[in-house]
Amino acid sequence: MSTFDKVADIISDTSEIPREEIKPDSHTIDDLGIDSLDFLDIVFAIDKEFGIKIPMEAWTEKVNNGEAATEDYFVMKNLCTRIDELAAAKA
């Protein structure tokens, strides 16, 4: 199963968003409407699934400082790329 499929399944299970609505170009916040509390549950599930620790605080700080756009981290395909990078770095 691809990273995208695993993450989409987690989001669907956690937030009750229909699985078919989750696309690689979906913005998890702007398009899927995931709120911060549901996002905590999703990050928890992703951390466990991939054995990583998504650096949410660092990402948020970069977005707030204008060093990155929310799309860089929170569009599904980009989020999955970051997850793959974190998993590879840990391996």
């Binding site: 905590l40 990050v43 928890f44 951390d47 949410m56």
Partner: peptide, 9 residues
């Protein structure tokens, strides 16, 4: 259970 970034379970 989990020591996350900005959260814990």
């Amino acid at each position: 259970e989990h020591d996350g970034s900005g959260f814990a379970v």
